[in-house]
Design a protein around this nucleic acid. Structure first.
Lengths: 153, 153
DNA sequence: TACTTTATTAGGAATTATTATTAATAATAT
DNA sequence: ATATTATTAATAATAATTCCTAATAAAGTA
């Protein structure tokens, strides 16, 4: 894990400040565990898994439990302090390979298709993409709260 | 599950034809199980989970096993006959909320950041997006084979 | 500072999702 | 029709995540 985010200390500081503000705003206690778990993800460029976060946090808090890590990561995601790569829970499949994107409801987990209008361009690939490897698929996912969930609450 | 894809029978037929061609091309046997599993996903607009596919297939092939469904879905994905929404395996987290996208290597699972160049616009949201609900995050994922994996065979 | 309240946590058990194993089955070529 | 060999069913095993409960500790209050 890197100790700085792309070599930018200020960015890390900004994230930590935001974290504390958000917690206090929501009335969440800033516990050692919560702070350390957030720090671990905020400092890393490696998109760590829950297990990796657990291992890293355990070096300083040897008794931290894996459940705490999962619980905290979920609540940090809820507060928009970090994001989850891919989707949680089980895999879902799509037989439609035409260019379109998915609206994923973060509350109920439902996945909706969004097709671009005729003539509407979905996206242009960032130029740095080709340096990473061979791009075979593009997945564009919009996350938010779906209409149904907005209505029922 | 819908029996037609957005009301277009031709699209479904196209997918089935492609499926058979791909299987024969790769020397894979077109078994009842394989065909029914593919059909189930190809006919559906609901991005079914492996479990859902299993339930649907079992109505016609009562003895199909869950393992077969998982195995077949994975091979269909490999053949680019369907795609997986989100990521398989474990969840991974990112503390960087600045606009950027991820290159996900489908071979080794590694996740790399790609930041747009200065002035480069990542994407414009499809106009249909706002009808789905409130978009809170945009996740752009490029999938392919990373440089490292390309080199080591 | 000590006390109280209540969210949070550790530890372990339970659940869910996915993958591996192996003998039996069935699709294709002959 | 038969042989060959990929594929499958059934079940066990593993991996990932979540639940449960008593113990702990953060933040407010006296």
């Amino acid at each position: 894990m890197n100790l700085t985010v792309n070599g930018q200390k200020e960015e890390l500081q900004k994230r930590l400040t935001r974290f504390e503000k958000q917690c206090r705003g929501k009335g969440l206690r800033v516990t050692q565990q919560r702070r350390k778990i957030f720090c671990t993800v905020a400092q890393s460029c490696e998109h760590p898994s829950a297990e990796k976060v657990f291992q890293a946090v355990r070096r300083e808090l040897p008794n931290v439990s894996l459940d705490t890590v999962y619980r905290t990561l979920a609540s940090l995601e809820e507060m928009d302090l970090l994001m989850r790569v891919g989707l949680s829970s089980k895999a879902r499949f799509d037989g439609d390979l035409r260019p379109h994107c998915h609206f994923v409801c973060t509350r109920c987990g439902e996945v909706y298709d969004i097709f671009p209008q005729a003539g509407e361009e979905l996206l242009s690939l960032p130029s740095a993409a080709k340096e990473m490897g061979e791009v075979k698929q593009v997945h564009l996912q919009l996350r938010g709260i779906c209409k149904k969930c907005q209505e029922r609450k």
